[in-house]
């Protein structure tokens, strides 16, 4: 009986002790989010800000557009194409990062401990430089009079520069470069724990090389793959700097589209509603992640 009371008071104490953190979390995390939700149900103010009148127009305009002149309503294919481009580019970025990241992580994990430390260190070097600078560096490489085109022209392979800058390809190159380390690190962590004796066992049981990879290696390092994919996919989806610099303001992604609403578009409610949509997509991706990774976890 005494022990029970003791435990209960300890639980209460724990609650009280964590109260400051909870309050902080509520104010700092939920507060701003709540403002975004409220703003998405208001009318745009003159030039900027919001007018405090309830309206679902912003949500309506995510999926539908009303013609400026005759008022006919149609599906907002322009918005949808921006969403589709964002999802498409993010998936492609994830795929590229995975294809490049898996052999890289495998290579690092199979070195001696000393060499491993050096390779991991090299992987983290790009993080020392600001993202914007790195993006401009990519721009310097792919622009019409940049490194790539000048080299190709001087080698006589092409006569006029290849237009890569300001295309979806440019955005893709930029994002794959920027987010690759986020794929390599979790993959490395997974491969590092992998018991290589299992591969020998696979071969002993007459599995082909492909069979070992597909049925032994990949299933075991799956949590690392899923974590890496999420770490690349989520920031890609919300990317702002890379498409802004390399996409030339015409090929927008969701992040740029949201920014546009708070700037030149002068429609804060629409910007807020779009932010919520992005948040929902990211949450859905995370939900899938927890489902997929827990299914495999022997403890869960």
């Amino acid at each position: 009986m005494r022990a029970k009371t003791h435990r209960r008071s300890k639980g209460l104490n724990g609650w009280l002790l964590s109260l400051p953190a909870l309050v902080l979390l509520l104010i700092a995390a939920s507060g701003p989010l709540l403002i975004v939700v409220i703003y998405s149900f208001l009318e745009p103010g003159d030039y900027s800000g919001v007018r405090w009148t309830f309206s679902t127009d912003a949500w309506f305009r995510i999926l539908f557009q009303r013609d400026i002149f005759d008022g006919t309503v149609s599906l907002a294919d322009a918005n949808l194409s921006i969403f589709w481009r964002s999802v498409k580019l993010s998936l492609a970025t994830t795929l590229i990062a995975f294809v490049l990241g898996l052999p890289t992580a495998w290579f690092i994990a199979t070195r001696t401990p000393a060499a491993r430390a050096v390779w991991l260190f090299l992987i983290t070097i790009p993080f020392w430089t600001n993202l914007l600078i790195r993006t401009f560096a990519i721009m310097e490489v792919i622009r019409n009079q940049g490194l790539m085109n000048t080299a190709l022209i001087n080698l006589g392979l092409i006569e006029t520069p290849i237009q890569v800058l300001y295309t979806d390809t440019a955005v893709l190159i930029g994002m794959a470069y920027v987010y690759l380390p986020l794929m390599v690190l979790p993959l490395f962590a997974a491969i590092d724990r992998f018991d290589f004796k299992l591969i020998e066992a696979g071969y002993d049981l007459y599995a082909s090389r492909m069979g070992v990879l597909r049925r032994v290696v990949l299933p075991i390092i799956r949590p690392g793959i899923v974590a890496g994919c999420i770490l690349v996919f989520v920031p890609s989806l919300g990317a702002y700097v890379t498409p802004r610099v390399l996409g030339g303001g015409k090929n927008m992604m969701i992040g740029n589209f949201i920014e546009l609403q708070f700037g030149q578009g002068q429609n804060w409610p629409l910007g807020s509603a779009l932010s919520m949509v992005l948040l929902i997509v990211v949450l859905a991706a995370l939900l899938i992640y927890t489902r997929v990774s827990s299914r495999d976890d022997p403890n869960g």
Partner: peptide
Amino acid sequence: PQKATELYTAIWTELRK
């Protein structure tokens, strides 16, 4: 005038999509 600016903004937003 505000009315003209609203129309221009609508065109501009459509263009920038």
